[in-house]
Design a protein around this nucleic acid. Sequence first.
DNA 1: AGGCGTACCTGAGGGC
DNA 2: TGCCCTCAGGTACGCC
Length: 286
Amino acid sequence: MRLEPFTPTQLLLGIDVPELPEVETIARGLANAITGKTIESATVLRPVVYPEPVRFGKEIVGERIAAVGRRGKFVVLSLGSGRRLVVHLRMTGRLIVQRAEATDSEPYTNVVLGFRDRTRLCFADVRRFGRMRLVEPEEEWASDVGLEPLSRAFSFERFSSLLDGRPTPIKVFLLDQRRIAGLGNIYACEALWDARIRPSRPAGTLSKPARKRLHISIQSVLRRAIELRGTSIDDYVDAQGRRGGFQNVLSVYGRDGGACTRCKSPIKRTVLAQRGTWWCRTCQKH
DNA sequence: AGGCGTACCTGAGGGC
DNA sequence: TGCCCTCAGGTACGCC
């Protein structure tokens, strides 16, 4: 994926194929850029919102952005009324803050929220998979979203019990957002390499030491990726003009044929659950 | 219930 | 040059 260069008047907060570290980076950037602002206008250009566009617009105008956070791969904008605007970027979604005088609007824009101070938030998405949903204060929108892997709730015991009895390949398990929320293809592959575990290994058959390593690896890979502000496969920069940095330290993802940094064997690409899977056959034996 | 296959969507890149 | 074709990815949905 490659996108048009953007003007200096735009603050780019989107990164390709957002997983937990990218969504966290986007949410932090948004928190800085729009917390406290009041929505003055809403333009829905594509029907990727809930409720339907007309009602969505009516409901959201006048709301103030009280806070911006993340849950799994969802960006969560908490609004003054207690409602929340929940955004999933899926594959190519981007949340971009622009100044109103920016002449070029973001390409592939779905929704524009205009603020009283004449800045605006654009929700753009080339592939139109992303969704934006207004959630009522009492509404339980995240009941299907699994454990936050960087929270205290993600204890070894909880993690291990989720694996028990599961015949599904461990990599497929890691991608299941109902169990653990936030891992996508990149960080699932990276965590398994770090823990020296074969991606096709049935989840429930992992030994206790392997489970311990994976529990640590999931957290350390995600923490490091957040520190590096995510993975930019293409030439993106963030709100401060900086690229994500994790693409420079990938161990396996997308490195088909490259040398394993641990054992020098070639990295292999296979397919699991219709997903590209990169791993080292020599050192991922557990 | 859980696991699997497919649809969704579009640009990039390869083959001829 | 340009036209096909395939691929990539996360999630929802229908099916067994």
